[in-house]
Design a protein around this nucleic acid. Structure first.
Lengths: 198, 198
DNA sequence: CTTTTTTTGCAGTGCTCGTTGCAAAAGGGA
DNA sequence: TCCCTTTTGCAACGAGCACTGCAAAAAAAG
């Protein structure tokens, strides 16, 4: 059913181009990443970029989707694979300390930092990231709720505030990674944060 | 001893201009705040801005210094006025929930969010903010250290990681405020965070 | 008054931004 | 072979960026 494409085939690998664009956005944020910076990193011309992705914002959306299913996937894995809510969130924060400070990639979490202004040109990018931030906070809340249903946690525990607390810790860890904090330092933050568990 | 200035007096109040520039930077961040945006907010011409402040980055530095001594002053007050380290940090976080979400000003903390890229034009601004972030983390650490010296906390407690933890919580609260969290929600985060106290 | 010093408004500097029109190039389908 | 479709490189678009040269304007100092 999938008919072969008709015209001239493109000279670059689309997925590889997205991966390279991701690194650039991840390093500089949305606004500070210019089309020139992108085309250099992706190894293609500006016209090809627009032909393949449509606009800077559309490319960014694809980049973020790629990011959350690759570099961001450890989060869902930690929450899903651990038998308890406590274990899942503890593992998520512990692994985040390593992920946010790894040498082979930019520091911090792309979703947390890449756009912070919702009144200028980056409003669309900011909206995209905000949605993802709400999504991982909701994932924490779901896991806590499941822990309550399983009897791991008291029914008196309020899931939403607890989830927001862990989201705040994660976001703080992300910025501290950007500021140069080491993996060990962030692991200490994660361990301290878990002491607030009810 | 203070001789009167010689030439034509400037037509605007310098401090008032800084206060207005602060609001603009606070809303949009460093990079997204253009000179045009600034001159409109400050009610002066571009030439006057450069005459009085030198450059965008120099103005930003004055703005940040003004910010930390006014809107950011509650932090030092909370840490200094409370008799215990626990009380000081708890009050700081509780008050932050209100400060970060107040209706009469942009949301979040200027020092936490206004610049996130250290590889482009905003490198200088980012360095300024990073210094202030290190400063408030150091203030937390000093207060914890004093608590240990006073016998409030065990000598086994390691001050630096605990300070970094509370800094992370504060930074997370700031971004959640930007994302629309309510004062009550942030107060819940602050209260939860204090349960990790040793 | 004149001189001196500073601020002001205006216009414009060179540069970069995201984006696009155009025609040549390059492949598949008939 | 000749179409048809798509991608490519090139050059440029108007707009906005941080910043500045210049001369008129305004006030204190002499």
């Amino acid at each position: 059913m999938t008919t072969k494409q008709r015209g001239r085939p493109r000279l670059f690998d689309r997925d590889e181009a997205i991966a390279r664009a991701m690194r650039t956005f991840w390093e500089h944020g949305y606004e500070a990443t210019s089309i020139t910076l992108l085309t250099e990193a992706m190894g293609i011309g500006a016209r090809s970029l627009y032909g393949a992705f449509g606009s800077k914002e559309a490319l960014f959306k694809e980049v973020v989707d790629f990011y959350v299913t690759t570099y961001g996937a450890y989060m869902g894995r930690a929450l899903g694979e651990e038998p308890t809510a406590h274990g899942g969130i503890a593992r998520m924060l512990r692994e985040a300390a390593g992920q946010l400070t790894a040498d082979d990639r930019p520091r911090g979490c792309l979703v947390v930092f890449a756009a912070n202004d919702n009144a200028t040109a980056s409003a669309g990018a900011e909206r995209i990231l905000r949605t993802h931030r709400a999504a991982f906070t909701a994932a924490f809340e779901d896991r806590i709720r499941a822990g309550i249903a399983a009897g791991e946690l008291s029914a008196q525990v309020n899931p939403a505030p607890l989830a927001r607390y862990f989201a705040a810790v994660f976001q703080g860890m992300s910025q501290q990674a950007r500021d140069g904090a080491s993996r060990t330092q962030l692991e200490e933050v994660a361990a301290t944060a878990m002491r607030a568990w009810p």
